[in-house]
């Protein structure tokens, strides 16, 4: 799309070992210093897209299409190339910070060890940078934290430490896979503020994966809505959430608690999400869609532009009048 994009995926498709197709023709880009959201339910392929970007897919997966990061073709990388990209290029934080932290090693060692390896810093330089990082993610008393162990921290603090570790080698892109889903709202607010500040101060790009549309609204500038491994709709987050141009986006908005008190009910999406590998031949959302026509069941619709900066993979999108 844009020549200057930090990350760009061009019709990326992923098939898991066993021939289960999980991502179809995903086209996506992230600009330097931009926070981009990916929305979707479980099984939508949003986390697998992230896994593909770090070569974390199960062995035997097949990836086709294009993926470039900072001008480099990701799909052609060898082991050494991936090692360079991970850490200094793209890094990741997960929903469960405990999975990213070694329980038996002090935080300081986990932070400094790979800085010394990757950036070639001396022990004292690495230590200084570790303190700086912990301070940057607003951990009180960084000096003491270096000697502490993960279990001594609350979930929110652990996620901050995980972010500090992810930032250690100065990545250009941070992939955050539901990093606040397991956290309380007040703690989540802190993490969102942190990511936003890091973007402002260091020009970090963030690909933020979540199912919480409120979080997307607050944090991201553009959003991709995934369903059954396809991009259903994309555009500036504000416009996308206020005037959805895909029935699935509208349905997601309707299913979330939104209105005034005492309304008493939500509008659930009928049916259940597609099981990977069992998608219907046409639009994967057609069986659950109020607007589906006979055309929708023949072939999956291509994302088509709406206006200048939006795409929707729904043929009825232009006439779609949906109230979120």
């Amino acid at each position: 799309m844009s020549g200057s994009a930090l990350l760009s995926l061009d019709r990326l498709a992923v098939t898991l070992p066993g021939g289960v197709p999980v991502i179809h023709d995903a086209t996506l880009h992230v600009e330097p210093g931009e926070i981009v959201g990916i929305a979707g339910e479980s099984g939508s392929g949003k986390s697998l897209t992230a896994a593909a970007l770090l070569n974390l897919l199960p062995a035997g997966s097949r990836v086709t299409g294009g993926a470039t990061f900072a001008g480099e073709d990701l799909l052609g990388l060898d082991r050494a190339g991936w090692r360079r990209i991970r850490g200094a290029g793209i890094s990741m934080v997960f929903q469960d910070p405990t999975a990213a932290l070694h329980p038996m090693l002090p935080i300081g060692r986990q932070l400094t060890e790979h800085m010394r390896r990757h950036l070639g810093l001396s022990r004292s330089d690495a230590r200084a940078r570790a303190v700086e990082l912990l301070d940057q993610v607003r951990i009180p008393d960084p000096q003491r934290t270096l000697r502490s162990y993960p279990h001594q921290f609350s979930g929110g603090m652990r996620q901050r430490v995980a972010i500090a570790i992810a930032l250690a080698c100065r990545p250009k892109l941070l992939i955050a896979d539901e990093p606040t889903t397991a956290l309380d709202v007040t703690v989540q607010a802190g993490i969102l503020a942190l990511l936003s500040r890091l973007r402002d101060e260091t020009g970090l790009s963030v690909l933020f994966i979540t199912h919480d549309l409120g979080v997307l609204s607050a944090l991201t500038s553009r959003t991709y809505v995934f369903y059954a491994g396809r991009v259903m709709e994309t555009g500036p987050t504000g416009a996308l959430l206020s005037t959805p141009r895909h029935p699935y986006t509208a349905a997601l908005l309707g299913a979330r608690p939104h209105g005034a008190a005492g309304v008493g009910s939500l509008r659930p999406i009928p049916g259940s999400p597609v099981v990977p590998g069992q998608a219907p031949p046409g639009c994967p959302f057609a069986p659950r869609c109020d607007f589906a026509t006979a055309d929708c069941t023949s072939a999956p619709p291509e994302p088509a532009p709406i206006g200048t900066d939006r795409l929707s993979a729904c043929p009825v999108a232009p006439e779609l009048e949906v109230t979120p």
Binding site: V185, T186, Q188, A189, A193, G214, A218, G238, S242, P324
Partner: peptide, 24 residues
């Protein structure tokens, strides 16, 4: 109030949810 302010909402002019100082 802090809890309510921390809930991210969908808004035309989005802003980050307010942060409550400290930890439980």
């Amino acid at each position: 109030r802090a809890l309510i302010d921390a809930v991210p909402t969908i808004a035309a002019r989005p802003e980050l949810p307010a942060v409550l100082a400290g930890e439980v």
